[in-house]
Each structure stands twice: as C-alpha cells, then as structure tokens.
Nucleic acid binder design. Sequence first.
RNA 1: GCACCUGUAGCUCAGUAGGAUAGAGCAACGGUUUCCUAAACCGUGUGCCGGAGGUUCGAAUCCUCUCAGGUGCGCCA
Length: 566
Amino acid sequence: MTDFKKKLSDVLGKSIPQLTQEEILAMIEIPPNSEMGDFAFPCFKLAKVFRKAPNLIAEDIATNLHKGDFIERVETAGAYLNFFIDKKHFIKSVIGEVLLKKETYGSSLMGNGKNVIVEFSSPNIAKPFHIGHIRTTVIGNSLYKIYKFLGYNTITINHLGDYGTQFGKLIVAYKKWGNEEEVRANPIPTLLKLYIKFHEEAEEKPELEDESREWFKKLENKDEEATKLWGWFREVSLDEFNRVYNMLNIKFDSYAGESFYSDKMPDAVKKMEEANILKKSKGADIVDLEEFGMPPALIRKRDGSTLYITRDIAAAIYRKETYDFYKNIYVVGSQQNLHFQQWKKVVELMGYDWADDCVHVPFGMVSLEEGTMSTRKGRVVFLEDVFNKAVDKTKEIIKEKSPNLEDLDTVANQVGIGAVMFQELSNNRIKDYVFNWDKVLNFEGETGPYVQYTHARACSVLRRAGVSVEDSFKAELLVDDVTLEVVKKIQQFPQIIKDSQRKNEPSIITRHIIDLAQAFNRFYHDHPILVEDENLKKARLAIVFATKEVLSIGLYLLGIKAPEKM
RNA sequence: GCACCUGUAGCUCAGUAGGAUAGAGCAACGGUUUCCUAAACCGUGUGCCGGAGGUUCGAAUCCUCUCAGGUGCGCCA
C-alpha cells in the first residue's frame, strides 16, 4: 500500500529543506472534515524559520510545490495547506492491498519474534469467577492477539491466586464443616460458603485465625494432608474456570500461579540481601522506598513468611530466566498501582536492568448498582450467568429476526458472548464502571452485534454476488464521498493496530471497527451492490470484501468471532 | 493526611505525543422496507470540555492552584 503521508512528506521536504523528513511527517495531520482535504500541513511553526506570516508561507509553498501524480490539488486555508490526493490512486492502493493480504492485512513483522509475556485473568482459587474478572480476562486476551499479530512471540500466563493464608482458612473450614460430596457436586459455591462461614465464626473465636495460619504453614512445609486438600480445591476450581475460558475461547500457555513460586522465594530474598536493600523494621524485612516517595515494601513478615510482592518479584526473575522477555505485561486492576510501582522499584534496586521492560496495564473497577462487589456478602454477579443471559437473549432475537438460521446455538453463542466482550473492550481501560444488565444486553448502536451484523451482511452480499472479487476493479467508479469514507477507515486500520499496541489499549480497535461498520452501513444503504453493470458491481464488491476482511480481523484481535450469517 | 486515577451533551462515552466549526451511541421525536439481512439507514438539539489562573500564534489536550468522585497507603492478595 502506498504510504501517502510519507510521499507527501517527501514532496514537502523539497519545498522546506529547513526541516527534517521526520519533523515534516510529524506535522502532517488529517483535517477535521474531508471537504477541507485529505491531509493538512499547518505552517504556523514555519513563521520563525522564514520570518514571514504563516498564511503567506502556505501560499508560497502551494504555488511552488512540485506535486507528484498522487496529489490531485492543493488549497490553502489561512496558515493551512490542504492536500487532496488522487482518489482513484488512493482507492486502488488501499483496497488492492487488502485483496492481496486478506486476513493478514494490518499484520506486521515489527515484533521480530521477540518474547512478550501477557499475564492476565488470574482468578483466586475457591472463589467465584465474577464480573470483576471480566476486564483483565478480555483485555489480556486481546493484547495477546494484538502483539501476536504484530509479530511478537506471545506467552500467556494465568497467575492463579492459589496460595496464601486464605488456604489455611479454607482447610480449617472444610475440616470443621465441609464434606467431600458437597464440594464435588458444587465446588465453588460450597467452598465459598465455607470461606464465609470461617469469617463469621472467626469473629467470635479468633483462635480460628491461628489455626488457619498453622495450616498454611503446614502447606508450605509440604504436609501431606494439607497439600492434598489444597491440590483438590485447586483442581475443582480450575475446572469451573475452564468452563468460562472455553466459552470465551481463551487458552493459557501457563497456569503457574502464586504457589508455583513458593520454592523460589528464598532465592529472591537472598538476592535482595546481596543487593543490600533489605532493612529490619518492626520485626519485618522491608525495602525502604522513602527517597522515591513511596511507602516501604514489605518483603518478609515478622514470622519469616513472605508476601505478595515477594512472590511477584520471584515470579519476574523466574520469567526473565525462563522466557528472556522483551516485555512482561501485567493486566491487573488499578487498585494495585502502588504495589506495581513498589515492585518495579525493588526489582530495579536489585540491579536488574529489565525492570523497565515490565509494564503494569491497569484498568478501572467494576461495581454493582448496589455498591462494590463483595463475595463475602454474596453481592456478586457471576460471569457465567452474564454470558448465559446474553446468549439466551440472542436466541430470542434470532428466532424473531432470522427464524431460518441454521446452527442457531453456535451463532447465538458467538453473538451473545461477543456482545459482552465487545462492551468490555469499548471504553478506555482506566474508566470505572457500574455493571448494568440493560446495557450489556443492548445489541443496538455501538455494540458487538452491530459490527458482527455488518460483517454478516457483507458476507451475504459476497455469497450472492456470483463472481469472485478481483483487484482489476475500476477504482474510478468508487470516488464518491460515502465510499471514500469506507476506504479511509480501511486505510487507517494498520496504524490503529499499532496504536492499540503502543498504548496497550484494545478499545482503539473497538472504536475503529465501529466507525468502519458505520461507514459501510451508509455505503450499503446508499449504493446497491449487486447491479447489472458488471464493472460497477465488481468495483463495489471489492469494497464489500475489504470491509468484511477488516471487520473480521478487528473482531479477531478483540477475541470475538465473526459469524457469516446471523 | 499523603499518593495515583477520573471529571466532555439528560445518560454512557470518543477525542488528551497542542491545531481549523468539540464528536458518537443510548434515550426522545419524526421519516425510510415491491430493493443485496430494518441487529440497518436518514433527520430534529443539547455543551461555561468541573472551576480559576498561566504557557502558546493556537489549549478539552501542557503547567500551577482548586473543587468533586474513585482507588491505594507495614505484616491480606
């Protein structure tokens, strides 16, 4: 595909030798609306260089410019130079590229096979998989796909919360009030009930807390009974999580959770001692971070046992040794901003130069209309329920709108689950939001089903066309504004993928494919595609094909299926 | 108390490596189907971009202060 911006900067470079190619490229922008032009070059900054009013500079450049064959005309508007590129050339170049590359359009080798770790989802064993987990799960999965598409070798890690004193509590509760059949029949609800009961009882009998600490100590010391119960809880929980992961089509390369690093902690602590950064404070081992404006990092408790941050440090070292990562990404809620800052600083102080390759990708909180979620108080929305409801609603809609659709179940799954995922990926990660059933179950407007529907429509036209799409289409038949809008969105797509990677922000892709779908629906509405005129039909089909391809790639990068009929 | 994040239309949000008239969706009202999927399309209007200063030719975007909400701050994860 011709890089029009680059070519334009070449042309401008000849008129403005005072600026470097990069400087010119950075100054080129896209006008607020297409009537003004396709590209714009503001001349304000040149005023100092040329010692002349910016609007006069614009005039000068415009009259002396040797525009190549790709620029149709140049206009000035005040200090702006507005360029209109040759539309035929533009369409041919963009659509031709998609026809050639098909489902690899927008992919890249820029990653050069470098290893990128994406840690995400990471639910706690024996606790419900609820709506609060959806963002890390869906965002992490999308980032994994984006990096992979850009040529990185991507490794996904589910850092399970499968260790800690909570397991002591659970073992105590199970031994006192639980039984095997009940757990087998209904694992997570039963374990959760036991966990809640423990906390209720512990309020009256604080000695339960001591007991649970003892059991956790036993677990750390590989006590047979403790290990067996812990392994069992972990297994039944993972089975339940996998049901949801299967619904979402998500797989992990590694399930190395907190427990995996339990034997790697002493070594990590030793390295901190060697780096001479550990300090005793109130009986505990800490790293003092006061000079960096942060509270101290607690590495080891008074009783010698380790903490969350210690495990994360051990995990990072292990990952560097095992994967030699180029980037190590943590998709974890913004509540842990401070934790990650401290953790990174400690890793840096330990002398590891790769501390900066570790990035925390935070996201905002999900709450319910009743308030913040609380598993202990039973104030929680289960993820599986959300997906099931969305699928049920989709079935109703299909029965009404598309009663003859074959494979109803498959499509309803793809659309219902896609709707929920899409919504999670539409807003900036960092925003908090309140979960609302009406909103997730709305399938009109800027939603996943809207994009999927647009894709299905495009597929349908291609099926009925009866001719194959070729790159010999006549681009001059496509130069109207409505069609050009579609082509522009397609042209921007590769850069959009890179932007979303750079910012670790899948919503940039989500927004863009909504824009493309809108532009396409306008095109679809205004222009009949399957017309008598063979040339016109072929030209419009090329647009349909390219749109279908980009929508499908976009949805793929979000982890969402693109059904061909719905 | 300290630190970080957020504040844009009635609601949910785009737009923040400064740029031309601040945009969508939802909701409301009205219109479009002998025609490729109406989960669609078109039209109607609303903004002290939280507030005040500053930097700049130019600020929703950068800086300072301030207000409101959220999150986090030593033995949980």
